[in-house]
Design a protein around this nucleic acid. Structure first.
Lengths: 224, 224
DNA sequence: GTATCTCAAATCATATACGATCTTGCGGGC
DNA sequence: GCCCGCAAGATCGTATATGATTTGAGATAC
């Protein structure tokens, strides 16, 4: 039987609600209401929340309580920088072990991404993007780095609810960069070359999003 | 008054014992004895241990309990790889904000490190090494990356109890590399140059330690 | 009108108690 | 002799209860 501890149930529920945006940043997580909603006592809920704190989803203050982590102005920048760093390394470390089959699978996923460009579907694009990159870095032999990549992707789930993360023009360029990255891996390029390609691929997205935000800010200033 | 919650006390004590090697890898952490030793109930101890789990110090198995994380053969390699990655980035990101004063302070610390080479004192060397690198990356503007650096250094504290981490020949080379790294920062070298210098500095230590281990393994084989 | 004090409500922090689950050793059957 | 089942002990998982701390509203003094 699938024996799921209550603390685990609470963890999944609260995390799901944070990632989906149902619990917005700043929302106060009070133990007793959550406990009674889930039909359990406060103890496992407290454990779940402290676990979410350790993972950065919530902020905890002694004798006051927990709230969904606030998002600073620079949060998107810092998360993307970190993700660029660890994802680049993970891709480079995994590259020597990527098989021809995996390359082919990645190319098929990328082709699907190109299809989504004809319609506006950020959700499908994002899902496929994760799927593609997963193929590239899941075989990373260093579990610590792989774990950091997963944490980065999880953090992005939350940020997408409150930041822009999809710039149509950028999406097209992204698909092309995927092809080039796959070429590099297939051709056995040097680890550093692959690392920097994967890193710059993400940093380019970061730049595009920041530029897009600046543009919007400008428009707002002009109309204000 | 310094109001330290009991769960925090338990956390500090257990962590200190793991880092000092008093609790060796594999040691089973049973709640009740720890609780009675600290004069508290099991609840805050449990919380402390789950926090240590989230940080990688201990491994937890449902309905069985916790033990100090075992150290796999590859653990030192993976931790050093990760540290090289994040420390390199932190140093490069911090470099533009490092003042002449800080450079001077770092050079003084490095001079002290050179002094320790005349005697065998790994502890002093290691402490000074942390102090020096702290000067270089503490002003890193990305808190996520800085946090990863700190986690890496913490992990190293534990690993030093069970792995080799000091190779006298390597220490001398390390001091010279510090000088070169400081020169690069002072001269305003490019971020990528600084990043790779800081990264390779640590990877060189990794290589030296692994080579040293291989050598010992060989000797053991010959005499066996 | 503002500042400060008091007190009650809300909430967290911890203790204690009990039920659930895993481990281990023993005995019986094959 | 080996394997399986079963019971007892160890330990975790969670519920409930109580103490500690914070917060905020209202009263009071200035």
């Amino acid at each position: 039987m699938a024996v799921v501890p209550k603390s685990e149930q609470a963890y999944r529920l609260v995390r799901e609600r944070i990632e989906s945006g149902q619990y917005v940043p700043g929302y106060r997580l009070v133990l007793s209401p959550i406990a009674s909603e889930l039909g359990m006592s406060v103890v496992p809920v407290r454990e779940a929340i402290r676990r979410l704190e350790a993972e950065g989803f919530v902020t905890f203050e002694a004798n006051v309580g927990a709230q969904v982590s606030l998002i600073k102005e620079t949060e998107y920048l810092h998360t993307m920088q970190t993700l660029a760093l660890v994802e680049g390394s993970a891709t480079a470390l995994a590259a020597p072990t990527v098989s021809a089959d995996q390359i082919a699978r990645a190319r098929r996923i990328n082709a699907q991404m190109r299809e989504t460009l004809t319609r506006f579907d950020p959700q499908a694009f994002t899902d496929l993007n994760l799927e593609l990159h997963s193929v590239l870095f899941e075989s990373c032999p260093n579990p610590h780095i792989l774990d950091l990549v997963h944490r980065g992707w999880n953090r992005m789930k939350v940020l997408r609810n409150s930041s822009f993360s999809f710039v149509p023009d950028r999406a097209a360029a992204s698909v092309d960069e995927h092809e080039r990255l796959l070429d590099l891996i297939e051709d056995g390029a040097s680890p550093l070359e692959i690392e920097l390609a994967a890193r710059n691929h993400r940093l380019a997205t970061l730049d595009a999003v920041l530029a897009h935000q600046d543009q919007l800010t400008h428009q707002r200033r002009k109309t204000a």
